[in-house]
Design a protein around this nucleic acid. Structure first.
Length: 592
RNA sequence: GGUUCCGUAGUUCAACGGAUAGAAUAGAAGUUUCCUAAACUUUUGAUCCCAGUUCGAUUCUGGGCGGGACUACCA
């Protein structure tokens, strides 16, 4: 039974009986804790229909609900707010329907499909903290969509070609002396990243020398020999020159092996990978077709543009005067390719940092102009940068937080704190290490996901490693304690008598209320593309349950049916916590 | 300059236009013969400024102030 809709129905009926008119939008909200009741009807808007004052209106509705609906036992009116007290019999009914539903919160397939793109790294350097936010976000949004009944395709586009990788290649060729991941013991992506940094160092030195001998900055940047080599390699790559292609393949291969390790630990996965080296020429035909249809225009120098001034944007180049593509061209082609690869998807979600908001605005507009109806369903899941207490992360200045290092640190710290608490002294090394992994990554994921994606956020290492308070481990801990209860229950005989609960404790009512809200929050999370909603829901539920846990010792209960109820109640909370956390990619331990 | 996002306790985050703005953390004070104290309880403390719309504004509109991003024939 769905409490919310049942209640709304009852209220609608009551209003139409009393005032002979319908209300299009009922404002039902949770009651403030200082008043009695769980649901509050805001009666100001209804006062217009009732032609009475808000308080009078509220009182009339309340009285009739109590006498007729069978759901409401009491009410009180504060200003224009009607606070409703739901009968405990209704609460237990709500609870048992949730308890019976083994897949509670997961909707049946709605036969709709979406594509979610995330990660999409460059192949010239290792993943960092920013990528972690991206991956956790994208992956989680995909899972949230799944839970809402969608079939989801997780993809990424790997930026495997271009000047950036040629820079690493050039530096490796000059200074690598054949170094490989095997010979150096370095993870592949780290090794390639090392040469990217090396490139920058040499490049700066060369520029400095050239400038000292009188060149201007621009000239120096063009004339630096290592840059010339990188550019040459890029040209040779485009001409498919075998040696360069071979080196490119080798070095990218190292990077992929390294990324695989990182992705595996992060717990993210992809259904299909797109490679820029295979898609960068796409889109040109589309642009030419658009030109014929008059959607785009050609300038005197032969370059092709789109005019978006009518949409409040600028003009944007789509083909250079020499006929070659730009980034936008390629993205147009890739989007269309994906809809051909997955004909049933109704939209694409692009998880990309907010510095590309303009780009995606333009992209979606162009696709719409080209006549693709799905264009208006596409969504740029834009997220804010992750700042460090020391300021912005800059790869060239070495202030990036490496993804592997960070995960390792979190796991180590989790292990250390777990040992210090000494609750799991009987665990084997293997069990302890998998527990530390769960807690460390749980803390990290929760930390990055609890914030509204759009917001720029601060990553304070000291605070992120905290395992108390508004954290993943707080929720994991709540789960573990419930497991402990259930283990104990399994060891004693619980009579299997029908559940009959006469009166509920306040903490139980509010937990059931929260449980009943789970599907609503889940739908909201999908609508808003926000794992933060799921994260904060899980936290609130755990918090609320902890109050129950603290005030009501379950096994002291003499009434067996009440005892049974409380066990099932705890079990259900654990199940919802586990499911919600799973949507964030966070596992929960049975002990910690 | 233009476009856009953001501005809430000391700090990090919440709040479909609703009640006395919630949490967490930091600070102060408590709870362990009882299912795991990574918990719980009490307490101190905030909406950048000025107008407007509204019964009601952190939320919507306009104008300031402050911060970020974007505004390349780069990707």
């Amino acid at each position: 039974m769905n409490l919310d809709s049942a209640l709304r129905l009852a209220i609608r009926e009551t209003i139409s009986q009393l005032f002979g008119a319908a209300v299009d939008n009922l404002q039902l909200q949770p009651t403030n804790t200082e008043f009695e009741g769980s649901h509050t009807l805001v009666c100001f808007p209804i006062a217009k229909i009732s032609k009475k004052g808000p308080e009078e209106t509220a009182r009339l509705i309340g009285e009739r609900l109590v006498s007729q609906s069978g759901m409401i036992t009491k009410f009180n009116v504060v200003k224009g707010f009607l606070n409703l007290v739901i009968a405990d019999s209704v609460w237990t009914k709500v609870f048992s329907s949730i308890h019976k539903d083994k897949t509670y919160g997961v909707l049946l397939s709605n036969s709709k499909e979406v594509m979610v793109e995330y990660s999409s790294p460059n192949t010239n350097k290792p993943l960092h903290l920013g990528h972690l936010r991206n991956n956790f976000l994208g992956w989680s949004v995909a899972e949230i969509y799944k839970a809402n009944g969608y079939k989801v395709h997780k993809v990424q586009i790997i930026n495997d070609r271009g000047i950036h990788i040629c820079k690493s290649m050039a530096a490796w060729k000059l200074y690598g002396h054949g170094e490989t991941p095997e010979s150096s013991g370095l993870k592949g992506d780290k090794l390639v990243g090392k040469y990217y940094v090396e490139f920058d160092r040499v490049f700066k030195r060369q520029c400095g020398e050239l400038e000292a001998s009188g060149s201007s900055k621009e000239v120096a940047e063009k004339e630096a020999s290592i840059m010339k080599l990188a550019i040459e390699m890029l040209q040779q790559w485009e001409q498919r020159k075998p040696e360069v292609l071979q080196l490119w393949k080798t070095m990218n291969g190292w990077v992929y092996k390294g990324f695989d390790i990182t992705y595996h630990r992060m717990g993210v996965d992809f259904e299909k990978l797109y490679y820029e080296s295979e898609t960068y020429l796409l889109g040109k035909d589309e642009v030419l077709r658009g030109l014929e249809k008059g959607v785009f225009f050609k300038k005197d120098d032969g370059s092709v543009w789109v005019d978006l001034t009518a949409d409040g944007l600028d003009q944007k180049v789509l083909l250079r005067s020499d006929g070659t593509s730009v980034y936008m061209t390629q993205d147009i082609g890739t989007a269309i390719l994906r809809f051909r690869d997955f004909p049933k998807i109704e939209k694409q979600v692009y998880t990309v940092g907010n510095e590309q908001e303009y780009h995606f605005k333009v992209l979606f507009l162009i696709l719409a102009k080209l006549g693709y109806a799905w264009a208006k369903e596409c969504y740029h899941l834009s997220y804010g940068m992750v700042d460090l207490p020391s300021g912005k992360m800059k790869s060239r200045e070495g202030t990036v937080v490496d993804a592997d290092d960070l995960m390792e640190e979190m796991v180590e710290e989790a292990g250390k704190q777990t040992k210090e608490l000494g609750k799991i002294d009987d665990m084997s090394e293997a069990e302890l290490s998998s527990l530390s992994e769960m807690i460390g990554l749980g803390a990290l994921k929760f930390f990055l996901l609890k914030v509204d994606p759009r917001k720029r956020m601060l990553f304070d290492p000291a605070e992120s490693i905290q395992l108390q308070g508004h954290t993943g481990p707080f929720i994991q801990y709540t789960y573990a304690r419930i497991c402990s209860i259930l283990r104990k229950a399994a060891s004693i005989k619980i009579p299997s008598i029908p559940m009959e609960v006469k009166a509920l404790a306040p903490a139980e009512r509010s937990v059931i209320f929260m449980l009943s809200n789970y599907p609503v929050r889940l739908a909201e999370a999908a609508r808003e593309y926000s794992p933060a909603i799921v994260a904060n829901y899980a936290f609130d539920l755990a918090k609320e349950y902890n109050q129950f846990y603290q005030t009501i010792p379950i096994f002291n209960e003499p009434d067996p049916s009440l005892l049974k109820f409380r066990l099932e109640f705890s079990e259900t909370v654990a199940q919802v916590l586990r499911n919600a956390m799973a949507l964030l990619g966070i596992q929960v331990p049975e002990r910690m």
